[in-house]
Design a protein around this nucleic acid. Structure first.
Length: 235
DNA sequence: TGCCATGTTAAACT
DNA sequence: GAGTTTAACATGGC
């Protein structure tokens, strides 16, 4: 999304629309200075005011939409050069100082990402299941349920394994693969070929051994896990 | 046609 | 007050 919105950096907002229950009128007349991302959040920086967008499960956006937006429009920003419309998403207006509090190094796609810092964070959650820790946005910002399932299959770890039971080598693998797979995910997403690369997510048969995959709602938030009892070890 | 899910927050419960 | 459950958001695949 950021890659598609950067063309608006430097442009001034001429009108604001949408049903977002925020004080969105403050954006009127402001210039889009920058676009930042942290995990699944996108920050549009307008001087001292920042708009945070999260597309949740099925949010969407469009650029330079020709048809008139309907009442489902959450936030619409019109610029002289074109427009950005967001649908079915979370919108929050923040002060720019908020950006200083963001732990950028937790973002799996960030240049500031740190293996050491992530390892240190993991040590604070010894009793958590790995399926929960991968979805924890303070630790692995940007990782979601699909990436969780694929990473655990790739490193052959059962989703219900306890963090403190993982050997040090596996912890390293977990952290590295979370980042590594996320870059693959982004590239596949860019090319609209994401789904065909899934090995276990929503699948029923293990591509390695041919055994039936387990589908189970695991962890604190009972998110879907797809895994192979043969190929993934429960630590 | 109905269910459910790539996610998160906040209200409503216990 | 802490922890847990539910609702809300409202699209699209199966």
């Amino acid at each position: 999304m950021k890659e598609n919105l950067v063309e608006f950096i430097g442009a001034k907002v001429i009108s604001v629309k949408g049903n977002a229950k925020v004080d969105k009128e403050v954006l009127q007349g402001k210039k889009l200075d920058d676009i930042l991302t942290f995990g699944k959040q996108t920050y549009l920086v307008f001087g001292s005011v920042v708009v945070r967008i999260h597309l949740l499960m099925f949010g969407s956006y469009s650029i330079n939409e020709q048809t008139k937006p309907d009442k489902s429009l959450r936030l619409g920003l019109d610029f002289v050069s074109g427009s950005i419309y967001f649908y079915t998403c979370s919108v929050k207006i923040l002060d720019k100082s908020y950006l200083k509090e963001i732990p950028w190094e937790a973002d799996v796609l960030s240049k500031k990402w740190s293996l050491t810092k992530t390892k240190k964070k993991l040590s604070h959650y010894p009793d958590e299941m790995v399926c929960d820790i991968l979805l924890n946005q303070d630790v692995f910002a940007g990782v979601g349920n699909i990436i969780k399932n694929e990473v655990l299959y790739s490193i052959r770890v059962h989703p219900e394994s306890k963090v403190s039971n993982l050997p040090a080598k596996k912890i390293n693998e977990l952290i590295r693969e979370a980042r590594n797979y996320s870059f693959d995910f982004l590239e596949w997403k860019r090319n609209y070929v994401l789904k065909k690369h899934w090995l276990v997510h929503t699948k029923s048969v293990c591509p390695k051994c041919g055994e039936k995959l387990i589908k189970k709602h695991t962890g604190k938030n009972k998110r879907r896990s797809f895994y192979c009892n043969n190929d993934q070890i429960l630590y």
